[in-house]
Simulated scan of single mutants.
Amino acid sequence: MTGTTSDTPAFPEPPRRPARTRVVIAAALVLPLGLAGWFGWRAVSGGSGPDARTPAPTASTASRDSLITDANSDPLGTSPAPSGTAAPSPSAGTGGAAPAASNQLAGRTVLLDPGHNSGNAQHTKEIGRQVDIGNARKECDATGTSTNAGYSEAEYTLDVVRRARAILQSRGARVVLTQDGDRPWGPCIDERARIGNDARADAAVSVHGDGAPAGATGFHVIMPARVTAGLADTSKIVEPSQRLGLLLRDRFKEATGEPFADYIGKQGLDTRSDLGGLNLSKVPKVFIECGNMRNADDARRMTDAEWRQRAALGIADALTAFLTT
């Protein structure tokens, strides 16, 4: 401004307040801010004192959908997980969120039995021999069925079992398989039962696909009948197997949307006394026929990788519920 220098203020400076007045004003400003910060901290911490904290998320709160994310690339590969190492998560290598690990099944052993074997057709003599199932003699194993397009039951069951294994291992379970694509054929039905018995499994599920007439559709769970004959004695496992069967029926339907079978059983359940894998089991065990591979609608679902991931989740959820309730 004209007539001023840099040392001279443009406007007269107001008179200064006494020092005591300035202290009082500062205190009046600081106190409300401090109270506001304290109330804000209580709101965040839950208001239960200086040690309160917002609970950290646990594995049980992880999104169930994270186990289904990006399942299209066969996340488990074609070879078994090395002994003593964790299997890849169901979304590993696909960019999907990996499921949170938990220990809810720590100390529990699960037997998963993928029905049949892709090599059985080349070993008809071996699988055709008769084995003792307690109340009868039956063939060691069978080739299994397939979709009209050639997707085999053995391929389907091994894929679903591997996916279920990954989920169960992520929950802390020890998972034993009757075969993991590492045998040229079999095993026989009596050995399948024995593997679960020797492992002292807490529960066992045998996974299958059915080969019913093309007009039939849906899934069903097979539970053991009471059989006490020769090598077979299911008297101790009938009741817990029925409980497992009900849980598997409900969880599988919830996960996949597959209807109950309209050609066998009742409301998705059947009871049989002619299956060696059930007759010879000493641990709670059921079979699941996940759908009719000869039916066009069922086949379309069963050949879809995302649907198979949902099937695996339904199986894993049923086993988890059985072992934790």
Rank of each mutant, 00 (worst) to 15 (best):
M1G: 12
T4H: 09
T4D: 14
T4Q: 12
D7I: 00
E13G: 06
P15A: 10
P18S: 11
T21A: 12
A27E: 15
V30F: 10
L31S: 09
G34V: 13
V44T: 08
S45G: 10
G46M: 08
G46F: 12
R53M: 10
A56H: 05
A56E: 14
P57K: 00
T61S: 15
T61D: 13
R64Y: 11
S66Y: 07
L67Q: 07
A71G: 01
P75F: 13
L76H: 09
P80F: 02
P80V: 03
A81K: 02
S83N: 08
G84V: 13
T85P: 05
A87Q: 08
P88R: 03
S91M: 04
S91G: 13
S91D: 03
A92R: 01
G95K: 00
A98H: 05
A100Q: 11
A101G: 08
N103H: 15
K125Y: 11
I127G: 01
G128R: 01
I133G: 00
D141N: 06
Y151L: 11
T157V: 11
V161W: 03
L168S: 05
G172F: 07
G172D: 04
G172E: 05
A173V: 02
R174Q: 09
Q179D: 11
D180R: 00
D180G: 12
R183C: 12
R183M: 15
W185F: 14
W185I: 04
G186R: 05
C188M: 03
D190T: 05
D190V: 07
G196I: 05
N197A: 08
A199W: 03
A199K: 01
A204W: 04
V207I: 15
V207W: 02
D210L: 04
A214F: 06
A214S: 15
A225D: 12
V227W: 02
T228Y: 04
K236R: 09
E239F: 00
S241T: 08
L244K: 07
G245Y: 05
L248S: 01
D250Y: 03
F252L: 14
E254P: 10
T256E: 04
F260D: 15
A261F: 04
A261H: 08
A261T: 03
D262C: 07
I264N: 09
G265D: 05
K266L: 09
K266A: 14
Q267R: 13
G276H: 03
N279R: 03
L280R: 01
K282R: 12
K285P: 07
V286I: 14
V286H: 01
N295K: 04
D304N: 13
A305P: 09
R310N: 06
R310H: 08
I315A: 01
D317C: 11
